[in-house]
């Protein structure tokens, strides 16, 4: 079956089994290996991407769910000013150890920054509650996102996507 979508700005048309897992198509067919597979059951958030601007776990979606839509993965976000800001903040706070969970945290933190962005620990915790980190623990991760929220208003860009 023919399926169309854009991923990180590239238009893609695939003739593909529509039940293939979206994560497999993103990683294996299209080479965006920033998206990671942890649990494969929707529990850990490592495979999170933005689908039409909203965070979803790509391991429990089928490629048909992306038909006609827009995908943004960690690679795409890393190119955006707010993505870069977040990466700097995670770096400064030493919030990343093995890094396996990081693409997922980057995606949900990016969504939080563009959809809300209030430097509120309570809100950040809730926004990140679908993601698991097995190394660093969450304190530094929350601190990183908090720092990004505080710095964002000072940025020159008017980025909303």
């Amino acid at each position: 079956m023919k399926i169309n979508f854009t991923i990180n700005g590239n238009h893609i048309c695939l003739d593909i089994d529509p039940m293939r897992r979206l994560i497999d198509v993103i990683r294996n067919d299209l080479g965006f290996t920033g998206t990671k597979e942890g649990c494969g059951e929707g529990e850990c958030g490592a495979c999170t991407i933005l689908l039409d601007g909203k965070p979803v776990t790509s391991c429990i979606l089928n490629v048909i769910h992306a038909d006609g839509k827009e995908i943004l993965t960690a690679e795409g976000i890393a190119q955006k000013p707010i993505g870069k800001l977040l990466i700097d903040c995670f770096d400064e706070t030493n919030a990343v150890q093995c890094g396996f969970c990081f693409p997922g945290f980057l995606v949900v933190s990016y969504y939080y920054l563009i959809s809300d962005g209030e430097p509120s620990l309570k809100k950040i915790k809730s926004a990140l509650s679908g993601n698991i980190c097995r190394c660093t623990g969450y304190k530094k991760i929350f601190e990183s996102v908090m720092l990004a929220c505080e710095r964002k208003p000072r940025m020159n860009t008017n980025e909303h996507e």
Binding site: G42, P55, V56, T57, I60, L61, V108, A127, S129, G130
Partner: peptide, 9 residues
Amino acid sequence: FASPILQTM
């Protein structure tokens, strides 16, 4: 319900 991510799906 679950998490904000699951709530979207």
